[in-house]
């Protein structure tokens, strides 16, 4: 029924004059070209402006290499943690009803509505040497801000909603009938979760993890506040791009930026593939 409606609308559109149609299409294409396609091309053009040799030299330079490793390390720690948290939160919210449920949903959305700079600052205020826990941490020689743990914490904060936000609508839509059926057949809680709930949301979960990962690797604002910008130690890739740019090293800055762009493109390809998989399985209908 929905598709027939769309077809009817399309018929109405075709009835518009050719001029209007062309103008609308041109405006759309021009907008995309100007704001999406051209910047992307520019990143690669600038990156290769000093030749292929300079491009690869910029990528294997020790500080760039350290930034790449740090970015991967941060993603490898924060994404699985958010996967577990997101899955648990979505499961609790979608399948059960308990007091404080709407408060929990609001809290999960908090990182989306708060500026990333604030996200970084809260950790400085909490763990910095003048912060609440600072003196105790310093007495025990534990470094959090301006070190890798702080970067991981800030990244976890900004990427926290992705998995849960992806799963909650999906799980709510699926309802609890499958689980109830499993229960009547004698399955226990954990068994229901791993054999029924988890397989049902498999594609949605991967999709959430993918978005979470893209943000974890690309985050600039929050990480910038807690990083301390020590070259080769606490510089992630996005921060390293800024440093290189500020050192007039434009080709190298764009070379590292192009790695991030490639990552974004890969994410898009994977996302499209996941969506088609999810649609094929009928478990991801939005």
């Amino acid at each position: 029924m929905k598709s027939s409606l769309i077809a009817a609308n399309r018929g109405a559109l075709i009835a518009e004059s050719a001029l209007i149609r062309t103008v609308i299409v041109l405006v759309g294409v021009a907008f995309l070209a100007l704001f999406l396609f051209m910047p992307l091309v520019l990143v690669f053009a600038q990156a290769l402006s000093s030749g292929l040799g300079a491009y690869f030299a910029a990528l294997i330079e020790p500080d760039a290499w350290a930034a790449l490793k740090l970015t991967l390390l941060v993603a490898v720690i924060s994404v699985p943690l958010n996967l577990i948290f997101g899955l648990a939160a979505a499961w609790a919210i979608a399948k059960f009803s308990f007091p404080g449920k709407s408060l929990l949903i609001t809290l999960i959305d908090l990182p989306f509505s708060v500026s990333p700079v604030i996200a970084g600052l809260i950790y400085v205020l909490l763990f910095g040497s003048r912060g609440w826990l600072g003196p105790w941490l310093s007495a025990h020689n534990i470094e959090i801000v301006f070190a890798i743990p702080g970067i991981v914490l800030a990244t976890i904060f900004v990427t926290l909603p992705f998995v849960a936000r992806e799963l909650i609508p999906l799980m709510e839509q699926q309802g609890t009938t499958d689980e109830e059926a499993a229960r009547t057949l004698g399955a226990g809680g954990l068994k229901i979760f791993f054999r029924v709930t988890l397989p049902n949301v498999k594609w949605g979960l991967l999709y959430g993890v993918l978005l979470c990962n893209a943000r974890a690797m690309g985050e600039f604002g929050a990480v910038s506040v807690v990083s301390g910008h020590i070259r080769g130690v606490t510089n992630t890739m996005p921060l390293h791009v800024e440093i290189l740019y500020n050192e007039y090293n434009f080709a190298a800055a764009f070379a590292v930026a192009s790695l991030l762009a490639i990552l974004a493109l890969l994410t898009l390809v994977l996302k499209t593939w996941l969506e088609s998989q999810g649609a094929g399985n009928g478990s991801n209908k939005h």
């Binding site: 910095g128 912060g131 801000v145 301006f146 301390g228 910008h229 440093i243």
Partner: peptide, 15 residues
Amino acid sequence: SHGGSGKQARSVIDG
């Protein structure tokens, strides 16, 4: 570590 002088001092104060 490089940055605006005042901002850098702030970071050192914060740890």
